[in-house]
Design a protein around this nucleic acid. Structure first.
Length: 180
DNA sequence: TGAGTGATTTTCT
DNA sequence: GAAAATCACTCAG
C-alpha cells in the first residue's frame, strides 16, 4: 500500500478499500463501509473550492482529512485525487476490542465502529490528525488479502446529490452503520 | 425491530 | 444566520 494506491479515481479507491485493515495505534479492524466524494460533487466539502476548513482535502493522496460533523462528531476521510476523498463509515473491529469498548461505553461489538462518528470515537481519531499521512504513524493500512463481495448504494445523511450510488459496503457484513 | 426526533457547534455565505 | 458526510434515545407495532 503506497501513495499511488490513492492517486486514482476516488470511486475506484473506495471500492478497493473494502476489506482493507485499518489500525490507529494498533487499534482498528477491517473496512466494511466507505463513501466516495469528488470535487465535482455537490455534497462534497471540496465542491466550492479550497477553504481553511477543507485544505487537507486538497493535499497529497494518502493524507487524512478529519472534520467535525454536526458540531459533535469526527469523520475520517482518506484523500485521493486532488479535491476528492473516501469517507470511512464503518469497520469490523478486530484489534483492540477492549479499548474500543471502553471508549465507546457500549458492549455490542457490531456497533463499535458502525458510523463515522462512532468509528472515530472507538479509534480515538480527532481533528489533531487532520493532514497526517495514512501511510505513516500512528496509522496502519494493509491491502485486503482477499477482495470481499461488495455492494453499492445511496449515500447517507446528505441532501445534495444524494442520488449518486457512491456508498460501498462489504456485502452481508453485520458491522454496517445501516444495511445496504 | 424499525422509524422518528432532538441535540449541538463549526464553518461558510 | 443557516446548513451540515450523525448519534442515541424513545415510542409504536
Amino acid at each position: 500500500m503506497d501513495e499511488r494506491f490513492f492517486a486514482r479515481d476516488v470511486v475506484a479507491v473506495a471500492v478497493d478499500l473494502l476489506g482493507a485493515r485499518l489500525l490507529v495505534s494498533g487499534i482498528g479492524g477491517l473496512i466494511v463501509e466507505t463513501e466516495a466524494y469528488r470535487q465535482d460533487d455537490e455534497a462534497s466539502h471540496s465542491f466550492r473550492g479550497q477553504t481553511a476548513g477543507n485544505a487537507a482535502m486538497f493535499g497529497k493522496p494518502g493524507r487524512v482529512y478529519v472534520y467535525r460533523s454536526y458540531g459533535l462528531h469526527w469523520c475520517f476521510n482518506i484523500v485521493c485525487e486532488r479535491g476528492s476523498a473516501v469517507l470511512i463509515r464503518a469497520l469490523e473491529p478486530t484489534h483492540g476490542l477492549e479499548t474500543m469498548t471502553a471508549r465507546r461505553a457500549i458492549g455490542e461489538a457490531r456497533k463499535l465502529c458502525a458510523g463515522p462518528g462512532n468509528l472515530c470515537k472507538a479509534l480515538a481519531i480527532t481533528g489533531d490528525m487532520n493532514g497526517l499521512s495514512v501511510l505513516a504513524d500512528p496509522f496502519s493500512l494493509e491491502a485486503p488479502s482477499e477482495v470481499p463481495a461488495s455492494a453499492s448504494g445511496v449515500r447517507i445523511g446528505i441532501s445534495k446529490a444524494a442520488e449518486r450510488p457512491w456508498r460501498f459496503a462489504v456485502k452481508g457484513s453485520r458491522y454496517l452503520s445501516r444495511l445496504i
